[in-house]
């Protein structure tokens, strides 16, 4: 069993036509599927923000899934930035 890569905490900003009510529940479900913690959702016109924590490759997988998302959204880009842990 490989060593667990150090978990990361990142802020994802999902941009585009993303304001369908289906999208936040979709992101919650999909991050749960990937074993990621998803929190601190923010919704503004044209952007959804979420903080996720977990293995880096699985955060990549969440980004990949969100690039498509449910049928009624169009994601034009996803910005990512590390979030420092509060000590």
């Amino acid at each position: 069993m490989p060593d667990l890569m150090p978990p990361r905490r990142e802020r994802l900003e999902i941009l585009g036509e993303v304001n369908s009510p289906s999208f936040v529940p979709w992101i919650k479900r999909h991050s749960g599927r990937l074993g990621l913690e998803a929190s601190a959702f923010s919704v503004a016109p044209g952007r959804i923000g979420v903080t996720v924590a977990g293995q880096p490759d699985l955060i990549d997988a969440l980004e990949v899934g969100c690039l498509l998302g449910p049928i009624d959204v169009w994601v034009s880009a996803i910005d990512r930035a590390p979030v420092a842990d509060l000590i």
Partner: peptide
């Protein structure tokens, strides 16, 4: 494809 990932039980 991602040999270093420890898959979560949710998968």
């Amino acid at each position: 494809a991602h040999p270093d990932v420890v898959p979560p039980a949710s998968i």
